[in-house]
Design a protein around this nucleic acid. Structure first.
Lengths: 160, 160
DNA sequence: TATTGTTATACTCTATAACTATA
DNA sequence: TATAGTTATAGAGTATAACAATA
């Protein structure tokens, strides 16, 4: 919706994407894709991907919670969470005990191995962020996260 | 990796996700998901989704380019681009003429209908962004996009 | 040989309906 | 009846290999 550049195909025509680049949504997608590729590479040595890393972090920080509580905290649908938990369990990183007061629910906790793996992975993720956000100052990084959070929460800070 | 909160399951335990929230990557994912849901809703009346909207925008701004040029500009793999172009073509929003100088390639252009649909959809997307980024000032919005771009480009601004 | 567009394929992420066992 | 976890399924998004037509 911006550019002149009415050319035919001839050679190395540079594509004008200025219209799209103005949209935070488009830029978020582009940036996140780059970030995710790098993050996945960094997590691979630990047998983790983004979602299993996030889940394991929450379990270590909040031992004993149920799957539905964790799924809700991650804004995930519970059916999609089942495979994640299975994967962490299969790798011996977490245990699933039946909750004492509600025999439908599990209480998820990290194993010693899980805690150790997470500690290492956590450092790797921090290194990954330090590298990928290396062009930003610490203040800018905080401002970025804060602004993104406002986008997530919405204009009125709706809780619903 | 932060919190105390070693509770059992009992009732409405609030989950501590402070560790994850410090990561720009996690926050980007959460924010983008919210944004995408709203954007899809806004684009539905026009029969577009995020990727077809983006593609149509590029075609209107850069008439006559080939699929591979556009796919590269959007950082997409060409096989995944085929369906996008088919979809826009099926809806009568673009035409695919064989390029005059290279009979392997197509020269993609928007139809009159395509241009009109995009103009309306473009306004809708702008309204969507104005709403979703409503908690940010115009300066903040620009800063957000600029910082995200730096993340995409990388610390050294690598072009490769 | 290399490139454009294509098919086929596979893996991830996301969303919904419906089931089971407990409550 | 409602909830926790599960299964099955379907739709997007993303990635690679391999092919035909053309360069």
């Amino acid at each position: 919706m911006t550019g002149p550049s009415v050319q035919t195909i001839v050679g190395a025509t540079s594509v004008s994407d200025a219209s799209l680049r103005k949209f935070a949504g488009y830029q978020m997608k582009r940036s996140f894709n780059v970030l995710q590729v790098d993050l996945l590479k960094r997590l691979k040595p630990f047998g983790l991907r983004m979602v299993t890393f996030s889940t394991l972090t929450l379990i270590v920080d909040n031992p004993g919670l149920s799957q539905s509580q964790l799924a809700e905290a991650m804004a995930m649908e519970s059916p999609n969470f089942v495979g994640i938990v299975d994967e962490l369990h299969r790798k011996g990183l977490i245990v699933r005990d039946r909750a004492t007061d509600d025999r439908r629910a599990y209480a998820l906790c990290a194993t010693d191995v899980g805690a150790k793996v997470l500690a290492q992975a956590f450092a790797a993720v921090q290194a990954h962020e330090d590298q990928l956000l290396g062009a930003l100052t610490l203040n800018e990084r905080e401002a970025l996260v804060a602004m993104l959070r406002k986008v997530e929460t919405g204009p009125k800070g709706k809780t619903t």
